[in-house]
Computed example of a mutant assay.
Amino acid sequence: MSGNSHSTGRLDGKIALVTGGASGIGRATVERFLREGAKVAITDIEQDKGEKLASKLADEGFEVFYQSLDVVNPDEWQKVVDAVVARWGRLDILVNSAGIGRAKGLLDMSYDFWRQTIAINLDGTFLGTQAAVSSMKDTGGGAIVNISSVLGFVGLPNISAYAASKGGVRLFTKAAAIECAEKGYNVRVNSVHPGYIETPMVMRRFDKIVESEREAEETRLKQSHPLGRLGKPEEIASMILYLASDEAAFVTGAEFVADGGYLAR
């Protein structure tokens, strides 16, 4: 298992569900949660990858299972949450990590492109939060961590759909957190805003660049972060772990940035 193998048991006895859990930040989070004592349901639209990961982790002795989930399908969300509760009795933690990131100029963007980006990144977060809160409020509460982006704070050319979706996640998180608190649900809701991280979604941006220009583009992207490098999925998983744990019991409606200084300029 990748990353730091040391466990402090920070999630002992917790039941977690991670979307987009077969790769990138989602996978790093799944692995970190398991090491910290949680039982984890992995969901991802990539069934083969998700099943292989769950099988590998189960063989290592962890309590884990995979279930396919299209995050824009309300019925599938209900089935997944029901499956977690049927298996382990409740749901304590939801990490909404599934998402897509694509670039398209404002005048070149089709409405379908816009809608798909908003649907997966924002609608999927809403549906997951709604399904999780509905369950958590009756079983003692829980913690929800929504993965946004530094581009939920600032814009760049050609990513208006992505920025809109991630900005929406940022403010949806705050509104949901306040509502859960005021209604006494005992559910905390926070957002994490990574900079550019070494994940398949980010690294795919280089696939369309000719080899002679690739190194320069990678250097430019790294230098946009004052620390001079891209982040690692495990570094984001560490922040998610804090927010999911009881250490963050007084933290809700907050935004946590892990961006190598990207937004500090």
Score class of each variant (00 low, 15 high):
V64W: 01
G9H: 12
T125C: 02
E255N: 13
I93F: 00
G89R: 14
H225S: 10
A264R: 02
E234T: 10
L17F: 03
L227Y: 10
L34I: 02
D12W: 06
H225V: 09
Y162M: 01
I178R: 11
L151I: 11
M201Q: 14
N73K: 07
S165K: 00
M239Q: 13
K49G: 09
G141C: 11
M109K: 04
G9K: 08
A41I: 09
G184P: 08
Q116V: 01
R188K: 12
A176P: 04
D75P: 04
K222F: 02
L34N: 08
K79T: 12
T139K: 13
V189Y: 03
I118N: 07
F250V: 09
G253W: 12
W77N: 05
R27N: 10
R102S: 06
F250D: 12
T173F: 02
C180E: 01
G260A: 00
P194T: 09
A103G: 14
D112K: 05
A103M: 15
I178A: 13
R204V: 07
E198K: 15
M203D: 08
N146K: 01
F126Q: 08
G13R: 05
D82E: 13
Y196Q: 14
I209A: 10
N73E: 06
S224D: 01
T29C: 03
I178L: 14
E235V: 03
T125H: 02
M201P: 07
K104P: 13
D70I: 12
K208I: 13
V64Y: 04
E213I: 00
A161P: 05
G21D: 08
I118C: 05
A41E: 12
A54D: 00
G142D: 05
V18K: 14
K56E: 15
G20F: 03
W114S: 01
I236N: 07
A254Q: 15
G26N: 07
A28G: 08
G26D: 03
A216K: 15
I159A: 09
T252C: 01
G184R: 08
I178Q: 14
G142R: 08
M136H: 06
V154C: 12
V210S: 15
A244K: 03
R220Q: 14
L263V: 02
I100A: 03
G140C: 10
V95Q: 12
V85T: 00
W88S: 13
F65T: 06
A175C: 12
V133N: 15
S245E: 09
H225E: 05
A132Y: 10
G260F: 01
V192I: 07
L243F: 11
I178N: 11
D259C: 09
P194R: 03
G13W: 03
R229C: 02
P226M: 02
F33C: 02
D12A: 14
E234Y: 04
V95C: 15
V192S: 08
L243K: 03
K183I: 06
A244T: 04
F256M: 04
A163M: 06
L156W: 11
R204K: 14
H6P: 11
E255I: 05
K222Y: 13
G152N: 02
M201D: 11
L241V: 00
D123T: 14
R265P: 07
V85F: 03
S160N: 13
A41W: 09
S148I: 00
H225L: 02
G89P: 13
A176H: 00
G141W: 04
L221T: 15
A143L: 01
A258I: 15
G184M: 08
A86E: 11
E182T: 15
M1R: 07
R229Q: 09
G124I: 01
R115P: 10
E198A: 10
S212H: 10
